[in-house]
Design a protein around this nucleic acid. Structure first.
Length: 744
DNA sequence: TCGGGGCAGATTTTT
DNA sequence: TCTGCCCCGA
């Protein structure tokens, strides 16, 4: 009778029908959260709330687009604003930024742009080379995420870095303002400041956006929390959805407390728990929830499903990373060939991007179509950044990062010295760098030839600037021609430059498509905003029939019939950098939980005993997380790789050694197995005792000679094996090396 | 000014 | 293994 409510469960219906007042929806994985949110939007519309009073904020463009599409289906033609936090803030700032000294055409700096500003700021306060810019950047980001502005920052806020940050931060912020630019954190931070310090604007926006929804609330940081709060004072209809067990971004400033304390912040809140899972089999869900129950800091949840029992969760131990990859890919290929599954049904997850290599190779070898998500980011490629910098400069001539990037790209004889002198002049005259460049004839300190080169560049720039109102594609092709960029790539002999030209074509296509959707003049700014605020997982092809390879982080919010989580090894998952802090270990555990709960029908977890990673060879232990898995739904297959006996298994890549002969395949319980450590060879010696020139033995590569050593806790040795294995680097603590006495 | 070679360092990265 | 950065020679 009611298409909006009939298909919903009681809990879902309660959430959807909630109209006024704060609301907390605790939504377990696969519990139909998006469905609830979109249905609630439709329900609000139907109950008479105008579309313009509703705003729903997400973290990713992908999520925003998906919600838009689904709302459109439920309530065709209604223009509800579904957007990412950053885009929402950007739009508010373009309207009201004047209060903060921001013009409407401000530039948005991505992480790498921001880093170049930071380097300049560090130079300004003469701390060059003393601190790692990335550490200072992280500290500034930390401060902004906690609403601490440059004037309020105090050196005591960070232990050793504090004094440096105290000096760099204000300079960094001043430089951003001079360039009329904001970094990602600023989009949120400035918005929060705006709402905080201008009550009349806050009240106006609060009234305009009467119904505010926030998705993935467990991943909000302090600033996002403030923004949501400040928009929900007069009209406290804030509705948030999330799952504390899926909080995997605390390292980016997300604060789980926001969701854990929501009921305290809004005592009148309606709390709805969505605990029924519609995605996974009984066995997958039981294993995942038993596993996450090992976390201490969490809200208990009773996940259940009415789905089939399903097959056992497979736990696999492989002898080597290559065996793991070929084992998984063979399995996938077999399922596809048998017609039981399609490539798009499969996903392989791992902790870090660098682990994707063996899978790529195995996929290529078996001719299985696959898609690597988010590894090399399109918009981070040099040629793309270069061209976008031209566009950014046209849009905002005071954008110093853009100017510095393009002024000598392609090379036109304007080196760092010239730029430094121009900058000095600009500083003395209190003018933007671009104006100094325009008057380069007056800059007496410049090298002889510089003014001519700079003047030539300015002529190109002026010509391009004159086109700023034209369609983006036209501007872009003018940039390519006039700047000499295309010519310099075309005549290059570097084969990579041909790829670059292809990427540029792709950018041109994107521009053309954008123009088609935005026929109005002055689309440039909108285009730039779009390109700054997207990332590559956004254009992940849902449609393509390919196996998906991605990190566990990227997997959040997705689902696949068959999921493989690989390399569940100590030091990788949990990552070695998180092992000191119990909170971080819990986050790593949540990460695996997220991965497991992506699976609909089949789940396989695996590790291998030997792994070459970052050019180093290592025997590794299974993750302690293996121990945390409830065993009743597990099928532990010890090293059986598609019928190949692991003892005699010989990997296809000759450079990868087979497992050590000591490896005895036995069926044991996961718990017993996780306790195992790679047993040390009898004649192993402490890492410190190795010296350069020492002759050593490796069980697979044979006799070799140490050519170099590094120091520290993870002391490693580079060894040359004349036997044909070439040069290998080992972490001495874990490597099966032993010194050889006597002559060789 | 510019390109090559050597060397250290390397999570995750919604925006 | 791969990348980015620094330094040096042309």
């Amino acid at each position: 009778m009611d298409p909006l409510l009939d298909s919903l469960t009681e809990a879902q219906r309660a959430a959807v029908c909630h109209r006024d007042g704060p609301q907390l929806i605790l939504a377990g994985p696969g519990s139909g959260k998006t469905r609830v949110v979109t249905h609630r939007v439709a329900y609000l519309l139907r109950s008479g709330v105008p579309a313009r009073q509703i705003v729903a904020l997400t973290f990713t463009n992908k999520a925003a687009e998906e919600m838009s599409a689904r709302v459109e289906r439920l309530a065709p033609g209604e223009k509800v604003w579904l957007s990412t936090f950053h885009r929402f803030c950007s739009r508010l700032l373009r309207q009201h930024g004047a209060y903060l000294g921001l013009p409407p055409n401000f530039s948005i700096y991505d992480v790498s742009d921001a880093r170049s500003v930071l380097r300049l700021a560090v130079k300004d306060v003469e701390l060059e080379g003393i601190y790692q810019p990335d550490a200072v950047a992280a500290a500034i980001s930390w401060a902004k995420n906690r609403m601490v502005g440059p004037d309020k920052y105090h050196a005591t806020m960070h232990a050793s870095l504090g004094p440096a940050v105290e000096r760099v931060y204000p300079r960094y912020q001043a430089r951003l303002l001079e360039s009329q630019a904001v970094d990602f954190d600023d989009l949120l931070f400035h918005t929060a400041v705006l709402l905080h310090e201008h009550p009349e604007i806050r009240a106006e926006l609060d009234a305009r956006y009467r119904y505010v929804m926030v998705d993935e609330y467990q991943d909000t940081n302090q600033v996002q929390y403030q923004i949501a709060r400040l928009l929900s004072i007069d009209y406290p209809n804030l509705s948030v959805t999330g799952d504390p067990d899926q909080s995997i971004y605390s390292w980016r400033g997300a604060n789980v407390k926001n969701i854990l304390d929501f009921e305290q912040d809004y005592p009148t809140a309606q709390v709805v728990r969505l605990e029924q899972n519609y995605r996974s089999t009984q066995r997958i869900l039981r294993t995942a929830s038993g596993f996450i129950a090992k976390n201490r800091r969490r809200k208990e949840k009773a996940l259940f499903t009415e789905n089939d029992e399903g097959s056992l969760v497979r736990l696999m131990r492989y002898p080597t990373h290559a065996a793991e990859a070929t084992g998984i890919v063979d399995r996938i290929a077999a399922e596809i060939e048998a017609g039981r599954r399609q490539a798009r049904d499969f996903a392989i997850f791992y902790r870090v991007n660098a682990l994707s290599r063996p899978f790529e190779q195995a996929m290529k070898a078996r001719h299985v179509p696959f898609q690597l998500v988010g590894a090399v980011e399109f918009f981070q490629r040099k040629e793309i950044k270069d061209l976008l910098a031209y566009l950014m400069l046209i849009n905002n001539p005071r954008d110093e990062v853009a100017l510095r990037r393009v002024i000598n790209t392609p090379p036109r004889g304007i080196g760092p010295t010239t730029i430094d002198r121009l900058e000095e002049f600009a500083h003395q005259q209190r003018m933007p760098l671009i104006d100094a460049a325009r008057q380069s004839g007056l800059v007496t300190t410049l090298p002889k030839r510089a003014p001519v080169a700079v003047a030539k560049f300015m002529a190109v720039f002026d010509e391009l600037s004159a086109m700023s109102a034209k369609p983006v594609r036209d501007i872009l092709s003018a940039v390519l021609d006039r700047s000499g960029y295309r010519a310099s790539l075309a005549e290059s002999e570097d084969p990579n430059d041909q790829d670059r030209l292809a990427n540029i074509e792709e950018l041109l296509t994107a521009a053309r498509e954008f123009d088609a959707e935005h026929p109005e003049a002055n689309a440039l700014e909108a285009f730039l905003e779009q390109t700054c605020l997207v990332n590559d997982t956004d254009d992940w092809e849902f449609g393509g029939n390919k196996v998906t390879l991605m990190t566990l982080h990227a997997a959040k919010g997705l689902e696949f019939p068959v999921v493989f989580v690989a390399a569940i090894e100590q030091g990788i998952l949990p990552h070695e950098r998180s092992m000191e802090d119990p909170d971080q270990i819990e986050e790593e555990r949540r990460l695996l939980f997220v991965g497991m709960t992506r699976a609909r029908e089949e789940l396989q977890l695996s590790w291998s005993r030997y792994r070459e990673f970052r050019g180093r060879a290592n025997y590794v232990s299974p993750s302690s997380f293996i121990n945390d898995l409830p065993t009743e739904d597990l099928d532990f297959v010890s090293g059986q790789v598609e019928g190949i006996d692991p003892v005699t298994y010989s990997p296809t890549t000759p450079r990868t050694p087979p497992p050590r002969p000591a490896f005895v395949p036995t069926i044991t319980t996961a718990a017993a197995l996780a306790g195992e450590t790679p047993s040390a060879d009898a004649d192993r010696v402490p890492p410190e005792s190795y010296t350069t020139g020492m002759v050593v033995r490796h069980p697979e590569y044979g006799i070799g000679k140490v050519v170099s050593l590094s120091n520290g806790a993870r002391r490693s040795a580079t060894v040359v094996f004349p036997g044909g294995a070439g040069e290998k680097t080992f972490i001495l603590q874990h490597a099966p090396l032993s010194p050889v006495r006597g002559k060789t």
